[in-house]
Amino acid sequence: MSFEIPTIDISPYVMSPYVANSPDERHDAARAAVATDLDRACREVGFIQIVGHGIPRESIDGLADALDEFFALPLDVKKTYARSSSENRGYSPPKSESLSMSLGVASANMMNDFYEAVVVGTEAADYPDLDLPESSYAANTWPDAAPGFRPAVEQYFSHAQTLAAILMRAFTDALGLEQGYFDSMLDHSINALKMNNYALPESEIAMPGEMTGMGAHTDFGILTILWADQVPGLQILGADNLWHDAQPADNALLINLGDAMARWTNDRWRSTIHRVDPPIVDGRIIRRRSAAFFFDGNYDAVIEALPGTLQPGEVGYPPITIAENIAAKVAGLKGGIAPGGDLREAERVRAAG
């Protein structure tokens, strides 16, 4: 069975902003074609490569430079920006996380993911008129030892938020829902940018026990916008239960769905399982960088089956809030505590060839 990540040009949505109650909005042929392609891709793969996304090249280059500036700092300096394991902010050193445990799938060496990461996201202060929990909207830790980091990351973060909103309009059309259906669930969305660096000295590779770049997992929220180096490593678990390599084309971004969207659609759309194993050449891991923008939705939004996604007699996932779902997955990621509930993806990971 052949495997291919569909490439979709979303410029009809980027270049033609939504106008409420416009008689042409839902009937524009170009946008309708994009919506149809998105529905097919979300049903069959759950990963999409997009072009025409509107994020300027200079902003993406600035993000890459920011990653280089931060990750080049000495490890002892980077560790000063670490946060509590209960928070999804700040620096995480190598081998301090296990993404497979977010699905309750333990590895031989529990906290074995060798990437290092730094995370920033939306804060409670971004919504001064709302009383939001710090547990979901924690304040950021910006590294003053890397002075170019914050402005470049904030610029990219802003572009990614705009793109996520555009994608949600396209997804709304693809699902046949009334425009604006998700608005009340997204107006104080938990958004986070996780910037990753995969590289270890040669001596680290010889450590005993199983090691992975980033363990098999699904993403937790609604959708993910991924920028990554064009270096092999990212692998996607296909419908054939085999791992398939994936890397972005020039000027493309990868989009994948998260658990919230899969639960909303009762798995009509796929929250695709993926992992990262960068190549090893001459005993050294080839450096790979990535930045995943997680668009997760409002902390208090309830994830339950959308209209039209359940067949007569079919039972969907039990309702859960965005915050509850994320908290359970983060407890596995950072604390090694397997989440409870309906984890259909875990069985697919265990059966993967």
Rank of each mutant, 00 (worst) to 15 (best):
K79H: 07
A41W: 00
P232Y: 01
D113T: 01
Q247T: 13
N191Y: 07
L242V: 13
D37Y: 02
P279I: 09
V119I: 10
D173K: 07
Y13P: 01
A164Y: 01
R169I: 10
L73I: 01
V119K: 09
E58M: 07
I10S: 01
Y81T: 09
G209I: 11
T36Q: 11
Q161A: 12
R57P: 06
D39G: 11
Q247P: 04
I8H: 00
A252G: 07
E324H: 02
E44G: 10
I285S: 05
L223K: 04
Y317S: 12
I50M: 02
L163H: 04
S96V: 10
I303V: 12
G215C: 11
E324I: 00
G238Y: 03
A165P: 02
A30L: 02
R40I: 06
P201L: 03
R289L: 13
R57H: 12
L63D: 09
I280M: 15
S189F: 00
D342A: 10
A327L: 09
A246Q: 07
G148H: 06
R284G: 03
F157N: 00
M110T: 15
M1Y: 04
I166T: 13
G221I: 00
R275E: 09
P208L: 03
D24V: 10
G213M: 06
N197I: 09
L163Q: 02
G233H: 03
M185I: 00
D259T: 14
L167I: 06
W269N: 09
A249M: 13
E116G: 05
T265W: 00
S11W: 03
L306C: 11
D39Y: 00
L73R: 04
A199E: 14
L163C: 04
N196I: 09
T162H: 14
S203D: 10
L193R: 01
F70A: 06
G316T: 05
M185K: 15
A305E: 06
L73H: 00
N109E: 13
S203Y: 06
T36K: 07
H217F: 11
W227T: 08
L73F: 09
G313N: 11
A138S: 14
P17A: 03
A124Q: 05
A32Q: 12
R270N: 12
V281I: 15
A82D: 06
P143H: 05
P339K: 05
S203C: 12
R284C: 13
A239N: 14
E116C: 04
P133H: 01
V118L: 12
L103E: 12
A72M: 08
H27M: 08
M101E: 10
V105D: 10
A117S: 15
H53G: 01
H274I: 03
R89C: 02
D229M: 06
I50S: 00
G104A: 09
G313D: 13
E123Y: 06
Q179E: 13
L38H: 02
S84W: 00
F71D: 03
L226H: 02
F70W: 09
L193W: 06
G283R: 10
V153A: 08
N298V: 08
A249S: 15
A124H: 05
Y81D: 07
L237A: 12
A41G: 02
A66H: 01
